[in-house]
Simulated scan of single mutants.
Amino acid sequence: MQNHQHVSSALNRLIVGGGQTFDLNALLQSTSRTLSNLDFEHQHEMQRLEKSRTDPMLKK
Rank of each mutant, 00 (worst) to 15 (best):
A10E: 12
A10M: 10
A10L: 09
L11M: 13
L11G: 11
L11F: 08
L11P: 10
N12I: 01
R13F: 01
R13M: 08
R13S: 13
L14G: 11
L14K: 08
L14Q: 12
I15L: 14
I15W: 08
V16K: 10
V16F: 10
G17H: 03
G17F: 00
G18L: 00
G18T: 02
G19R: 05
G19A: 07
G19P: 03
G19S: 09
Q20N: 11
Q20L: 07
Q20R: 09
Q20S: 11
T21A: 07
T21F: 06
F22Y: 08
F22E: 06
F22I: 00
D23N: 13
D23K: 04
D23F: 02
D23S: 09
D23C: 06
D23H: 06
L24R: 10
L24H: 10
L24A: 12
N25S: 13
N25T: 02
N25H: 07
A26R: 00
L27V: 02
L27A: 13
L28A: 13
L28G: 10
L28C: 10
L28H: 07
L28Y: 04
L28D: 13
L28Q: 13
Q29M: 06
Q29T: 01
Q29R: 06
S30R: 12
S30T: 00
S30G: 14
S30F: 03
S30H: 11
S30C: 08
S30M: 06
T31V: 06
T31I: 05
T31F: 14
T31Q: 15
T31W: 14
R33F: 05
R33K: 15
R33Y: 11
T34V: 03
T34N: 15
L35K: 14
L35S: 15
S36V: 03
S36D: 15
N37H: 12
N37L: 05
L38V: 03
D39E: 14
F40E: 13
F40Q: 14
F40T: 05
E41Q: 14
E41V: 00
E41P: 08
H42F: 04
H42A: 09
Q43G: 10
H44S: 10
E45L: 05
E45I: 00
E45Q: 09
M46C: 05
Q47G: 06
R48D: 07
R48I: 02
R48Y: 03
R48F: 00
L49R: 04
L49V: 01
L49S: 06
L49F: 03
E50N: 05
E50K: 03
